[in-house]
Design a binder for these strands. Structure first.
Lengths: 154, 154
DNA sequence: CCCAAGAAGATGATGCGTCATGTACTTTGC
DNA sequence: GCAAAGTACATGACGCATCATCTTCTTGGG
């Protein structure tokens, strides 16, 4: 297997810069969100999706598909959020195996208070560092890679 | 605080696509590297840096600065890699507090065997999905964001 | 109908990352 | 040359992510 197509210098630099940005940015967003609101990025995502849900409630499997999380990750995470009083569960009459997840008042309040600061941080650290053309380019780039990913594993 | 500068549609789409790409790509790379070689991305990074080191050995604090990891993460990770026989430690005569980390033969073999497949995967899933211009654009974009990050917290 | 296949969700074990803190050694300022 | 401050590294606790597995219920083919 010595016919490996190694990365060129440019490719390697870009790839490493990307990885470094990704790590630093995620860590920083998480850190700030955590200290400002006590929420993790994962909590935030769950709460956003619940807020956006038509009836304010979702089946776990719907949440799972929207978040693209593993089923067991979601299940564990919902348990922890439940313990912290951010979400609650309701029985599902249509399917006795299933359940509904909904926001508690505390959950709604947490996301409402956290959102402005978080968006502001995303803006300051990321969006404002880039030109509109770069934003566009990034969107295209991400979609291209996502397409690759979806082709390569179904 | 109702003067939040929310994200425009374009910005939001780009940001979400980026997040989604980031998550899916990292997960996929990790999964493939893990099943192919038993190494995690973190293991891989440590091994690469040790391989590249002039004397084949590094002080943990050097490794830490190169990887941009938290000190305690590195310490824990090296312990685990030590248990698995991938690295070993040596005393540091110049500074009795410190130590050296070096590759074991198993560690060198692991990275040697894992690298071609991993690079090939990065290429197939990421680099080959993009044009050279996009690679360039990504590099610039990442550096800009990194600059922001470094300004905003030292 | 019934039973086999499959979907919804929970759970326990394990490795990982962070935070707070501890220990040992080195450097610095007087 | 010595005390105080700082540096190198380790450790325990805790929340998070994944894997394998389990239970409960639904569904679809005979």
């Amino acid at each position: 297997m010595s016919d490996t197509r190694w990365l060129s210098d440019d490719e390697q630099r870009a790839w490493r810069s990307y990885l470094r940005m990704q790590n630093r940015l995620t860590a920083e967003l998480n850190r700030r969100l955590q200290t400002a609101s006590g929420l993790s990025l994962a909590d935030y995502d769950v709460l956003v999706h619940l807020t956006d849900a038509p009836d304010g409630r979702l089946r776990p499997y719907e949440l799972q598909r929207e978040l693209h999380w593993e089923q067991s990750r979601l299940s564990h995470h919902l348990s922890r959020m439940h313990k912290r009083g951010l979400v609650r569960r309701e029985e599902c009459d249509e399917d006795k195996r299933g359940a509904y997840v909904l926001l508690t008042e505390a959950g709604r309040q947490a996301i409402t208070e956290a959102a402005p600061d978080h968006v502001e941080t995303v803006r300051r650290l990321f969006v404002d560092a880039l030109s509109p053309e770069q934003i566009d380019a990034l969107e295209r780039l991400a979609v291209q890679v996502l397409t690759r990913l979806e082709i390569s594993d179904g």
